[in-house]
């Protein structure tokens, strides 16, 4: 029983897209689909401008909007607080995708790419509305999610939010990391340093 969360330090992030590539490899995704997407924003007035990059994925909310609206109960929170999907129950109604304030859901189907890739990843994508699962298959083996291990600037920290001694909990306090749009009330568990 843990309560897994993540910290993403956008100041350290160099926007290299390695996390999204690792995610595609881990989940057997086609090259044009991803569970991580990037938002950009320009700030300031010329010549003092800067560009903000923000990698966004499923925020593994404590009170997930997608779970609440899912008619079949296919989307649920497992005992470690990871929001996962039971593919065998998903009917592809996409209500979760509309309800998620972070636009973190992706509908995948096997006509999009070669079957081999996602079968290797142990998945069946049959028009189900998929999402980041914090690489549950790795985490259950005591490993870290693919996007965390691959990050070249160590901008991502994964860990247990319930453990005050974890690297994650300490980093959140130290760096004053905050979740995205906490005002929406879904209690997201990815903390951002911005």
């Amino acid at each position: 029983m843990a309560r897994y969360g993540m910290l993403i330090d956008t100041i350290k992030c160099v926007n290299c897209y390695a996390c999204s590539l690792a995610c595609q490899t881990q989940n057997g995704l086609p090259d044009d689909e991803n569970f991580i997407y990037f938002l950009e924003k320009e700030e300031g007035t010329f010549p003092n401008v800067k560009r903000d990059f923000l990698p966004v994925q499923c925020q593994h909310c404590d009170e997930p909007a997608c779970e609440e609206v899912c008619p079949t109960g296919a989307t649920y929170k497992d005992e470690d607080g990871i929001v996962v999907l039971d593919n065998s129950k998903c009917i592809g109604c996409k209500y979760c995708g509309v309800a998620c304030p972070y636009s973190a859901r992706v509908q995948l189907h096997d006509s999009m790419y070669k079957k081999g890739t996602y079968e290797d990843a142990g998945r069946e994508y049959n028009y189900t509305v998929e999402k980041c699962r914090f690489c549950k298959e790795l985490v259950d083996n005591g490993e870290q999610p693919a996007c965390v291990t691959t990050c070249i600037s160590n901008a991502r920290i994964f860990g247990d939010l319930d453990d005050p001694e974890s690297e994650l909990s300490k980093a959140i306090v130290e760096k004053k990391a905050k979740p995205l749009r906490a005002d929406l009330g879904t209690k997201p568990k990815i903390y951002y340093v911005r």
């Binding site: 079949t72 065998s88 009917i91 509908q107």
Partner: peptide, 15 residues
């Protein structure tokens, strides 16, 4: 429109 249910009709029972 719910393709995953269309191709696996028994899933509609979970609705």
């Amino acid at each position: 429109d719910a393709e995953a249910g269309l191709f696996n009709p028994w899933r509609m029972a979970f609705l």
